[in-house]
């Protein structure tokens, strides 16, 4: 299994190997050591490869991931899994701002907490957070699911479109046009599946509340001006 020590190897060499651009991809499993908060670790992967990162990463780890399975044994900086298409990313520690921003598919699991704007502008990605999420999470979320086992910060789901949010703990406040919605059978089933895929054992879907768009901002109305 090729291993890249980022204290001696450049990010460029790592990503080139993961993309198979320098020479064609032979291996399917990669290890990354000593990332020490490096940016753009394992971005733009497009093959069914496995990347294990040992240590904390900086901005945009796994950005635009398609098909790869990336595990960060550490914390992740801003924008982990941004615009992810498919595959999966697991962060064993905490994640900074913008986790899964604009993600269009795949599964992002954060076992610790995620900071503000988790799932901002999400477009189909599934995000499961073992801990809590910060303010403005799922802002303008268009599609996909955000599951939070802990609490949510201020303005959850502000200006939400059709993303679905499930929170087990407390929600500090809901954003404009975000409301609590009834958990029906199909939502239980979806949530159960997401929790299982994310390996979050012991979390009972019935402990969660569901939030979604009130759809009042879908058509402009001057009497909603306070919400704009």
């Amino acid at each position: 299994m090729p291993a890249f020590d980022l204290s001696t190897t450049s990010i460029r060499a790592l990503n080139e190997a993961l993309h198979g651009t320098g020479e064609p991809l032979k291996d399917r499993r990669f290890e990354v050591r000593n990332p020490r908060g490096s940016h753009a670790v394992a971005v733009g992967c497009r093959d069914q490869i496995t990347v294990a990162v040992h240590g904390p990463v900086g901005y945009y780890c796994g950005g635009m991931n398609a098909a790869a399975t990336i595990t960060v044994h550490g914390s992740a900086g801003p924008g982990v899994g941004e615009n992810m298409m498919s595959g999966s990313i697991v962060v064993e520690g905490d994640a900074s701002q913008y986790a899964g921003a604009t993600g269009r598919g795949g599964l992002l699991v954060i076992k610790g907490n995620a900071a503000s704007r988790c799932g901002i502008s999400m477009k189909g990605i599934d995000i499961v957070v073992g801990g809590s999420v910060g303010h403005m999470s799922a802002f303008m979320g268009q599609s996909g699911h955000l599951v939070v086992l802990g609490d949510a910060g201020d303005a959850l789901g502000d200006s939400l479109y059709e993303a679905q949010l499930f929170v087990r703990g407390k929600v500090k406040s809901l954003g404009a046009d975000c409301i609590e919605k009834e958990m029906r059978g199909k939502h239980h089933a979806t949530l159960e599946q997401l929790l299982s895929k994310a390996g979050m054992r012991g979390a009972d879907p019935s402990q969660f509340r569901r939030y979604g768009s009130a759809r009042k901002l879908y058509t402009f109305n001057i009497d909603n001006a306070d919400a704009y």
Binding site: R36, G37, S38, P56, G58, Y59, S75, G77, S96
Partner: peptide
């Protein structure tokens, strides 16, 4: 400002 600054 970034984790990198704390890493040492």
């Amino acid at each position: 400002s970034e984790y990198r600054a704390l890493s040492g």
